[in-house]
């Protein structure tokens, strides 16, 4: 009986955990993105295996000046005075990714399956994936769904990936769709931009900025489901990886 309960519990934990995306406590997509950035930015000094600087072995996951991820962030962004380590300017998600990679260098599987090719991803975004029918990028496309022009500077690869495969779980509060009915029966739906106790601000389906006073409404509530489909089955894993690469390349102005 006890064994059954234990197995059931273990099964539930495994089923609930997005383990297929993660390695240890760092998300697989973040680690892979970190590996890519590390390859572009860090290998000149640290080498591909992280041990090219005398006395520094990044693979060991033990650092001279850092214990926590916050320490690592500090070293990367501020540099180390008196050494060859300069300060780097990374967007927050990039920093998260590099640290995720540093923590997992030793076990990292070089086979990159989660982050694909940005050019192919762009074609999928505009074409087969039909992302551009709702999302706007760099001044082009509708504003019904969130503008993604700088999504690569705002969200980690893991968060973007989860939004693509499980949008219901990942949608942010500010982007929830809402439905309101005025006292004279007019129905207003749109994407929430801001809300407080008495009012709500949204962009409606005609892309108008609308501000509503709740006391003037007959009905008001969140729309349970997002209009964003899951791409788990709509695109192949490789295609999702390509779209992710494209989205990560969008860093805004």
């Amino acid at each position: 009986m006890q064994l059954t309960r234990f197995l059931t519990l273990a099964l539930i934990l495994v089923a609930c955990s997005p383990a297929w995306l993660r390695a240890q406590s760092y998300a697989a997509a973040d680690i892979q993105y970190g590996a890519k950035l590390f390859g572009e930015q860090c290998t000149v000094c640290h080498g591909g295996s992280g041990d090219a600087v005398a006395g520094v072995d990044l693979r060991a996951n033990r650092f001279k000046r850092s214990t926590s991820d916050g320490d690592l962030r500090g070293v990367i962004t501020a540099g180390v005075e008196g050494t060859g380590m300069p300060p780097f300017k990374f967007e927050a998600p990039e920093l998260t990714a590099i640290i995720a990679y540093l923590r997992n260098m030793r076990t990292f599987d070089q086979k990159n399956t989660l982050i694909g090719d940005a050019a192919r991803g762009r074609a999928l975004f505009d074409g087969k994936g039909q992302c551009a029918t709702c999302h706007r990028v760099n001044g082009r496309g509708p504003r019904v769904a969130p503008d993604l022009s700088d999504i690569g500077a705002l969200r980690t690869p893991d968060a973007i990936l989860r939004a693509m495969v499980d949008p219901e779980a990942e949608i942010r509060h500010a982007n929830r769709s809402i439905r309101a009915v005025t006292r004279d029966g007019k129905v207003i739906t749109g994407r929430r931009m801001n809300e407080d106790t008495y009012t709500v601000q949204l962009i409606d389906e005609q892309e108008r900025l609308v501000s509503l006073v709740k006391s003037n409404l007959r009905e008001y509530g969140l729309v349970r489901r997002t209009g964003m489909p899951s791409y788990r089955d709509k695109l192949t894993t490789a295609e999702v990886a390509d779209v992710l690469a494209y989205l990560l390349s969008l860093k805004g102005l």
């Binding site: 706007r136 001044g139 962009i203 900025l209 805004g252 102005l253």
Partner: peptide
């Protein structure tokens, strides 16, 4: 000089 989308506040060009 920055151009900004009046609907969503995203910069368009700089």
């Amino acid at each position: 000089l920055v151009a900004i989308d009046a609907k969503n506040g995203k910069p368009i060009w700089k």
